[in-house]
Design a binder for these strands. Structure first.
Lengths: 330, 330
DNA sequence: AATATTTGCGTAAACGATTACATAAATTTT
DNA sequence: AAAATTTATGTAATCGTTTACGCAAATATT
């Protein structure tokens, strides 16, 4: 593979001049420019990005850590991240952590080793201490999931409010027995969505009953399983709010298997507005997050830190939207 | 950020010795080892991967180019790739090309610029010439989609045979009017799947009728749309083979909207066995590809090239499986 | 026309690692 | 005990760039 030296030699100039041509700097005579361009073309020369990044101590690359590339929710966010990154001359590289702390740390190591200028973390498994330490070394942003009280910017929605609105919608339809399918994990969104659920009940004067709360792992299967249990209660809930669309779809299938009609016998509301929520029958009432915008904002915030335009940690809350479909209203 | 020089200074040794410690080379006295380790810990030192890769002209990194991270089909493949990569000391970085040639080329540029030691391409948009040229410079593997006659290894399934089996299944159920929903694009799998469809018809003595063939873009919407047209034909097809699950699901929804029952009035078969094909009602008959194994094999083949254990281009065809569910048989 | 500025280009020092080679000290072999 | 080998370490070149600095030639300013 040709190097800048080969080009310089072929063009009969110094490497500095070649570098000037590559980087479009001024002060290169038209004839020299032509000669160098010619040599570059002939040798099919491509600057070695390692050498460049090493010299500039800047790689123009961003790492995006996400727990699961199979989750279409992240795909749309990534699109936003990518568009803003490209517009600003950065490339992004996706790293699938599989929600595995070890894998995540492997990628963080690469980050610390100057392979990238910064990172966007979605649903990081790291502790407060690890995150704080990391943020001291490298520009990072938390996207969607985040930990509070850290000196790290984050971009997300108001999960408590979103859940509150969703449950309020169910209550507004006349439901008094509203169940909840959540998740027991370290993520703030799980807690906040449950809090929103409870607040909506309280405000409507409905007693909060822990028996009406089940917990899964966001998956179709877990929704199916938890719903089975909830339906065995007496009195049976007439509505259920799930913190993921997959669990909601599992819940609906579970209810159907018991011979119940959705929404006539039981209304179901999801969260995420995944692509399938439109295709499923009945179509799913759900909370939509502005995925693309979340990604854009996260990337913009990151670039601001990298290019030292901002130093204060910022906390962005984007607008969400309750999308009412057949699973709650016929 | 501390460099190897800082460590050397702090430990009172030369950089060479520090490098020896980092790389676990022999011939370092226990005391020196201790001193250096201490200094590394105190300074929280991490080798700069750029410097290392530059010097070694090897990055221990692999690029995986995929057209769409939102497609869960690729997620499972990526898992296989990742597992094998990690086991061999490589890290992978995902690049989302969005089926956009320009984006793809941007990543290829990074690849050519020594940012990675090789790449796995899924559904590349590049031409024969571009691919051939690239393969001459950098180790690459084609995964799933591939072009024939290139000196580049590929890993995929026998698409013609898979389609043949699926259509044969429909014919075996007694269907004579079997329609086809495919795609008109540059991908070999599209052509091969159609060929398999035609072969199955021919062998069963059924006349191939182009009017029974519609074309979409793998999406739910296109399946829905194309199915509408096919259903307006007289005589109406009684079965349809789709080259993607999403189109199959769209087709089913389309049929249902026309008041038809699946599979009683019309049988539908998909391709891919995406996660949702189990959740959808009726559950979907489809062709399953060994995604994880495809990924593993692709990565193993790539490592063989990188580490120069093999030089001949290899052509791997993995086993597929027809999964019969409710959308064809009640 | 003398002086000041700009232009165009080259030299060489970084960036942060690895490693061939050299060398002195320690150990083993004869 | 001398010679040969091994061990432990350092020096300096190298990977492929960018860029500060220097300098001559060309151009502008007075």
């Amino acid at each position: 593979m040709a190097t800048i030296n080969d080009v310089a030699e072929k063009a009969g100039v110094s490497v500095a001049t070649v570098s000037r041509v590559i980087n479009g700097s001024a002060n290169v005579s038209p004839e020299t420019l032509e000669k160098v361009k010619q040599a570059i073309a002939e040798l099919n020369y491509r600057p070695n990005l390692l050498g460049r990044a090493l010299r500039k101590t800047k790689s123009e690359r961003i790492l995006v850590l996400l727990p699961n590339i199979a989750n279409p929710f992240y795909a749309e966010i990534v699109k936003g991240i990518e568009d803003v990154a490209n517009k600003n001359g950065y490339s992004i590289m996706l790293c699938n952590t599989d929600s595995d702390l070890e894998r995540e740390k492997k990628y963080i190591k690469m980050l610390k080793s100057h392979l990238a200028d910064g990172a966007i973390l979605m649903a990081s498994e790291m502790t407060y201490e690890e995150l704080t330490e990391l943020a001291g070394e490298i520009p990072i942003i938390q996207c969607c999931e985040y930990k509070v009280g850290l000196p790290i910017s984050h971009v997300s929605i108001d999960n408590e409010m979103a859940a509150y609105k969703a449950v309020n919608h169910l209550i507004g339809l006349g439901h008094k027995k509203v169940a909840f399918i959540g998740a027991k994990n370290q993520f703030l969104s799980s807690t906040l969505r449950k809090e929103g659920y409870i607040r909506a009940l309280k405000e409507a004067g409905i007693n909060y009953d822990p028996a009406y709360c089940g917990y899964g792992d966001y998956s179709y299967k877990s929704g199916f399983r938890v719903m089975k249990q909830l339906l065995s209660l007496d009195p049976r809930p007439t509505a259920v709010f799930c913190i993921s669309d997959l669990m909601a779809i599992g819940a609906i299938r579970s209810a159907m298997e018991e011979g119940l009609r959705v929404p006539e016998d039981i209304a179901v509301c999801g969260f995420d507005n995944i692509y399938f929520s439109r295709m499923f029958k009945p179509t799913l009432t759900t909370v939509s997050q502005p995925m693309y915008d979340l990604g854009c904002t996260a990337m913009e915030a990151l670039i601001n830190i990298i290019e030292e335009k901002s130093t204060e940690p910022m906390h962005y809350f984007m607008e969400h939207e309750l999308i009412i479909r057949e699973s709650t209203v016929k």
